[in-house]
Simulated assay, not measured.
Amino acid sequence: MGIRFLYPEGKIKTLTMSYDDGVVQDRRLVKLFNESGIKGTFHINSGILDQGNRIASSELKALYAGHEVSCHTVTHPFLERLPRTEIEREIREDRRRLEELCGYPVTGMSYPFGTWNDEVIAIAKSCGIVYSRSTRTSGGFGIPQNFMAWDATCHHREMLEKGAAFREFDRYPLAIFYVWGHAYEFDNNSNWHEMEEFCRMMSNLPDVWYATNIEIYRYLEAIRSLVTSADGGIVYNPTAVTVWYAYNEKTGTIRPGETVTLN
């Protein structure tokens, strides 16, 4: 059998959660994630913080510590309906403000209303965005073909059914279970118990890497950047990320700058 690449610590699967808008219900959601060891990515409209049911800008850094803060534009418009200069301003200014608040580079995004076109993608990439989530769902656990149009596995209304299938899933390594939604929906639908059940079901699974969207993106990009010899027997890692692999029923790592000869 040839080399197979794995997630960190030799895991074969990853779970990531993705929630939009930066609403006050995120406080309860983050608490559940923290208690369960689950990681989330939270897509924030920086221009609507401190208003209505949105969180306070002063609490953003502490609330989402250990998770990922990601762009969702300044004011949540339909991007494809804006002039090019406004698309750029909505994305770049959202990045700038979120980075100011959370203290690290913000390079992920989700599209407001889940809509975009090729021009929106090109402008987002020019603003330093490396992935963006849609509101489409695949129903599966595959790797996205295009990180700038990243489809989740499911909305959280299907998470219990899909979670049960994911627990049993072992057909191939590098499977991704990606759940998205809005935390206010749990108040609207009086179904916080479903997220509580999901967190209990998905917590502490030995074959699952719990990761944010950006962590998954960076890890898969590191795998794609590996350089192999013509016969596949030598692998060089030019990245700053340690990559895990399995070969001949043994698990190993390829550290940054390391060349590994498989035998």
Rank of each mutant, 00 (worst) to 15 (best):
S190W: 15
R171D: 15
R96A: 13
E99K: 09
P77T: 03
N188K: 14
E249D: 13
S134M: 13
S229D: 09
F166T: 07
E158I: 00
G128Q: 01
H156M: 11
D118H: 10
A183V: 02
G103I: 07
S57D: 14
R84H: 06
Y245K: 07
R95K: 13
D118E: 15
P256K: 08
S126A: 14
T228H: 06
V243A: 01
V24Y: 12
K61Q: 11
G142R: 07
R95G: 04
V241I: 11
I48T: 14
V227N: 10
A222K: 10
H193A: 10
N188F: 13
H72V: 11
E196I: 07
A246Y: 00
S203C: 02
M17Y: 09
T14D: 05
T14C: 11
I87L: 10
E168S: 11
F113D: 04
A175P: 01
V130G: 05
L226V: 11
S134W: 05
G66R: 12
S203A: 12
D187T: 14
T85E: 15
T137Y: 01
E185C: 00
K61E: 13
M17P: 02
R92C: 00
I176Q: 11
R224Q: 09
N237P: 13
H182N: 10
R167L: 12
D170N: 07
V208E: 07
G2L: 08
R224D: 03
D151I: 00
I12W: 04
F42V: 02
T212K: 04
I44G: 09
